[in-house]
Structures are given as C-alpha cells and as structure tokens.
Nucleic acid binder design. Structure first.
Lengths: 172, 172
DNA sequence: TTGCAGTGTGCGGATTTCGCAGGACGCGGG
DNA sequence: CCCGCGTCCTGCGAAATCCGCACACTGCAA
C-alpha cells in the first residue's frame, strides 16, 4: 500500500548528499514532493500529504516544521496588492557601483520593499516595492533608494496590472 | 471582550462599498485583517484569526473560503527556486508594439512563466521565468517569447541571488 | 408585509494536529 | 566488534481544529 511512494529511502543517504556553495542544506526528493503539495494548497492536511509522498503524518509534520525553521519555505497568503486595494506598486532596476551586496541588503531592510534580487544584466539589483500612494512611491525611490551609497542610478516600472502570479515550479 | 475588534460592522454597508474598475469585489476592513493574519502564517487556525479580527471561527472560515474562491488570495508555500535546487531563473523585460494585453496573456500561458505584470516604463511587460537550466532558459526567451507577435525586443536579467521575499504589505 | 440573499453564530461530530515514547539505521570511538 | 549518539520514522492517545448545518439577523426589493 505504500508502494507508490516517491522515494525508496532505504538505499540512499539522505543528508550526506551534495550541498551547494551556500549554507542551505540540499533537499531530497521527498521534501521536494512535500513542497509541491503545499504549493498547490498551503493548508493541505499532513495526513493527505503523507499519503501522496509515502510518509506518515508525523513524519510529514516534522519535515514541514524543519523546512519552515530553516527558512527554506514559508506558508503564506499571497494577493495582488493592486487588486486588494489602493496602493502603488513598482519594480525598480538599480545600477550599482561598488558593493552590490551592501545595496541589496539596504534595500532589503526597507519595509516597502517586498522583493530584492541580484541579477546579471544591465541592472545589478531588482527591487519590487509596495507603497500607499504616488507620494510615498516617489519618496521611497527618489529620497531613500537613490540616496544609498553605491547607487549610481535607477529606473522604475510602475505596475499597471498584474496578469499572473503562481508558485508551482515543482508541478509541471 | 469583543471590544478590540477591527471593525464595528454594525453601521457600515459591507458590499455596497466602492468597486474598482475591474470586476474584483472590494474588501472591507475585516477581510483585510484576515488576509494580514494569513500573510504572517498561512496555517493559522480560524479560531485564532477570529479572535484577532473579532469574528467567530465559522465566519472567518466562510470569508477565507470566499476569498480563495474569488481568487483574491491564495494560500501557498513559497520558496526560492534557486535555493531549493538546480534551475535558472530570470526576469525578462519586454518591449511590445500593439496589443500589450495579448502579449501578457501569451506569456501567462507559458508554464515556465511564474509572474507577469504590465508596467509603465521603458518596458511594457515584465515576466519572471523559472527554468531547468541554461538551455531551457535560452529556449524560452529566444525561441518562444521573442517569437510572440507584437514583441519588438526583450532584455533579460538572470537571477544570481534572491535577497528578500515577503508578502506582508498589510502589516507595517 | 413577505420573500430572498448574504452573513454571522453556536453546536456537535469527524478530522487534524500535537507531543511523546519507542524502533530502525548509519556512523564513529573504544 | 559493539556501544553510544544523532537522525528520522512510526504509532499512539489527548487536545485542538475543521466542517457542515440549523437558525437568527439585516437590508433590499417585489
């Protein structure tokens, strides 16, 4: 009855597996499968997940807790701020000279900034910001971001309409 | 004991409230408060949410279900694909001539595309894509996206490192 | 007024979550 | 070899949560 489990688990070394340069512990196939289940429905019961991945309810619960503690994943409600209400949203591309990582950290520290990623391309950093209104948006971009040491210039893309937003890279 | 509830609810018309141009029903303060709770923890029990927003457990449950059904919010596990494993990720800025909406829809239809937003700025559309590897990424950008009718040109920003990712626009 | 749709409440019963006591396994030291 | 240790899994009750349902209240329109 357990035969359709995702991983055999009996002949593999779970944790000794390769580990990327960063300090993040690599995940095995079972944890990936658990994440996929929760990408479909963040409130799915542990027992249902266990049946899908071939594990007991308690085991799934322990793994999910660990993934949460490690910061590998988070279970949250996501919305389109523009749809939910008033508020201005924009993506800001930043050109940096010098300490890119420092600028990214400074951006991350701002509460209006929801998303920060370092990129290879004409921008060094992309940051998504959510504001109350145009004044607030202007203040964040011109007063705060452009004032950061190392920021050479920025380019803004004010959001007009969100067309798609999913989190199911696993299930394809 | 109920006195610290978020909205008085007794003297306001809940649904007759203003409605944005789009077909999305506007949310009242209580639903906003519920969403905020779930932005902190997508698995928070209905009873706990009810206590926080001043509603019964059953009422919270009905509202959450409706928000889910309406597509106003989704409760899901989110991760950083780069951290979770192999895979290439990038943001693509698209210059469009003509039917911007059509291009955005076409992008949304692609499974590799996780996020699509129409913007005001030098790009007409921004799209975030998640791929297996470089070959896959190249194929999606050069073969599929650039081939879409109306796409004049694109610019790619390959992700090097995700620095921040939150969903708590409500709680500030 | 009457009927109806939408929303909230209270209440059991089914389900799920939670904590904890083992048991199995791999690994390294004595 | 075998013993201790850490990790992960399983199997339980007990407690908490989820769920469906009947009913009350409100605003609105026929």
């Amino acid at each position: 009855m357990h035969s359709e489990g995702v991983a055999s688990r009996s002949t593999e070394h779970r944790d000794s597996a390769r580990e990327s340069r960063s300090g993040t512990p690599q995940l095995d196939a079972v944890s990936l499968a658990i994440i996929e289940q929760l990408q479909e429905d963040g409130r799915r019961p542990y027992a249902a997940i266990g049946k899908a991945v071939g594990l007991s309810e308690a085991a799934v619960r322990q793994r999910v807790q660990k993934l949460l503690d490690q910061g590998v994943m988070q279970i949250v409600a996501v919305t389109d701020p523009l749809t939910v209400g008033f508020r201005r949203q924009a993506m800001v591309g930043v050109h940096v000279e010098g300490d890119v990582d420092g600028v990214a950290d400074a951006l991350s520290a701002m509460s209006e900034v929801e998303y920060v990623v370092m990129t290879a391309g004409s921008f060094d950093v992309l940051a998504e910001i959510v504001c109350e209104d145009d004044d607030h948006l202007l203040d964040v971009i011109n007063r705060r971001i452009r004032a950061l040491p190392g920021v050479r210039s920025t380019e803004s893309f004010v959001y007009l309409k969100l067309k798609k937003q999913t989190y199911m890279w696993g299930t394809r």
